[in-house]
Structures are given as C-alpha cells and as structure tokens.
C-alpha cells in the first residue's frame, strides 16, 4: 500500500498577471526522491516555497504527512527540512552558533555529527560571511537535517559544490532515502535528477508537462537512440550516405552522430558499410536518450508552439 507523504492538489500561485504555478497536482510517496525539473522561471522554486509555507497559495491545497498545513503551519514545522536556493544567515553567525541556534528552535540537540559529515568540522568558529558558496550550501543542508525531518526539500542542492562534495551529498541523499526520508529535489541538473530521482516531474510555465520515473519520461519521447561513430579514414564523410531508420544526423568533432529509431538495424548497417569501404572503426557508442535529451525535446517543442 502506498504511503503518500506529500499530496498537492491543484496548487496555484500568481504574481499579478503572471501565473507562476498553474493548477498543478502530484503525490510523493514515502522514501521517494521526487525531482522537480524545469528551466528558469518554470515555477519550481515557487512550488517549493508554497509547500514550505513561505508563500500563500492563490488556489488549491496540499497535505504533508496527511495534514493540511494551510491553517496551522507551525504544527508541521518539524516535519520538513528545507535547503533554500536563496537564503542567508547573519554575517557574523558562526557555524557552531548556527547549529545551536536552529537546533534549539527545533527543540533538538545540536547535530555536530552533520557538520563533521559535511566537512564543516574545521569551520566551527568561522563566521558565515567568510564561508565559500559551497560551504554555505553545506551548512544550509546540515541545518535542514538537524531535526531529522521526514520530508526534505532541496532546491538546487549541488549548485556551487565541488565534485567531492557533490558525491558526498548524493551518498547522503541515498542514505536518507533508505532510512525513509522523502526528498523533494528541484534541480537544473538533469544528470543529477536521472541518477538520484525515483520519479521526476517536468514543469514548464507553471504546468506539469510530464511526470513519471526517469525511464518512463525518456521513453515517452521520440525514442531516438544516439549512435556515435568514429572511423580512421573518411568513409563516413562521403556525401549522400544513408543508413536505415536514421531520423537525424549530425557531425561533431571527429564523430558522426546518428539518431535512430531502430538502433540494431542502423548499427549493423554502419558496420557493414565501414567494412565494405575498407575503413577501420575506432569508436562506436550507442546511448539511449537521456533525461536531458527528453527535457530539451519537451522544452524545444513547447517553445516552437
């Protein structure tokens, strides 16, 4: 039986004439990492801020852990942890003070272990104003996790993080997911969403265009498989070469890239052709469409309309 943790029903938010979030509905189940994807201005942050209680809804409703926070949000304060995209702490607040400060308001003990885990142990005495962007985001994440919330909102969590911190954050997200924490993730990073999210929703101009697992989302597109080929000679550079079931073709650096609706047939034809031309195959890669490809397909189609 599904255990719905976040239930959003026809949520609407407008700023004057601009409808930022337009009657969107979705559910998030316990232990899911739910990715909210979209270009800038799609409504991701506004959706999150409505669910976090930072903005008043203009329509619709939502439930967190089966309770509607519209009337008494304070009751649900300890149920959510939030890493805001743009938030700050007082310039002169030290890392350890920030931990003590917010832990006390959540009525829990200070979680120095989180600071250590996120590489902030050596920075305990450092004031917020002197932390790098990456360290500020790590601190923000540590503070969001202080009270062990069952629902975690992460808005662009890896922006400004180095590779190591990014890997550490992803490992942490997986651990949290395994322990039953539900994570709502807003991101521009399609690779991150594809790797981390159980399900994703693509938001465009305030509306959800598509929702499902990353595999489901990519499968609903044109379904073109990308075949990248590099040969020693110039056999593939000859004009008017045609391979079966190729819908699109492009040349990039030393590679010829074919988008095929039937990759098996296309690949065997390419290999046969190269062999006949007495050329040598150096590299051949077959990639299924990524979430990024699908995302670009959706946004481009929408833009053309």
């Amino acid at each position: 039986m599904k255990d719905t943790v976040v239930e959003v029903i026809k949520l609407r938010k407008a700023y004057g004439d601009l409808v930022a979030v337009d009657d969107i509905s979705f559910n998030v189940e316990k232990g899911e990492i739910f990715g909210l994807l979209g270009p800038n201005g799609a409504g991701k942050t506004t959706t999150f801020e409505c669910l976090e209680g930072l903005r008043k809804l203009d329509g619709g409703s939502f439930n967190l852990m089966g309770k509607s926070p519209n009337y008494n949000y304070n009751n649900l304060r300890n149920l959510i942890g939030v890493q805001l995209q743009t938030s700050g702490l007082p310039d002169s607040m030290r890392v350890d003070e920030a931990m003590n400060f917010f832990s006390a308001y959540h009525n829990v003990s200070s979680r120095y272990d989180l600071l250590e885990r996120l590489g902030l142990k050596e920075k305990m005495d450092t004031q917020y104003q002197t932390l790098s962007t990456g360290l500020k985001r790590r601190l923000s994440l540590a503070l969001a996790l202080t009270h062990n919330p069952p629902i975690l909102f992460l808005d662009e969590p890896t922006a400004g993080l180095d590779v190591q911190s990014r890997v550490e954050l992803h490992n942490m997200m997986k651990e949290l997911q395994e322990s039953g924490t539900t994570i709502l993730l807003a991101t521009h990073d399609m690779a991150e969403a594809e790797k981390m999210a159980t399900r994703v929703a693509i938001l465009l101009q305030g509306k959800i265009i598509i929702i499902g697992t990353p595999r489901e989302v990519t499968a609903t597109g044109a379904g073109l498989t990308k075949i990248s080929v590099r040969v020693e000679g110039s056999s593939l550079s000859k004009p008017n070469i045609k391979f079966p079931d190729v819908a699109q073709y492009l040349s990039k650096d030393e590679y010829k890239i074919y988008f095929s609706t039937n990759p098996g047939k296309t690949v065997s034809s390419i290999i046969e052709y190269i062999s006949k031309q007495k050329d040598n195959l150096i590299d051949l890669r077959v990639e299924r469409p990524s979430l990024e490809d699908r995302f670009l397909e959706i946004t481009n189609t929408k833009a053309k309309k």
Binding site: G53, L84, G88, L143
Partner: peptide, 16 residues
Amino acid sequence: KSREAGIFRSYKINGV
C-alpha cells in the same frame, strides 16, 4: 538587511 538577504526566510522555515 536581514529581510533583504533572506535571513528571515531561513528563520521562518526553522520555526523562529
């Protein structure tokens, strides 16, 4: 300045 820098937003979501 705290309001402009989003400090109060952090405070709000953490129950201050």
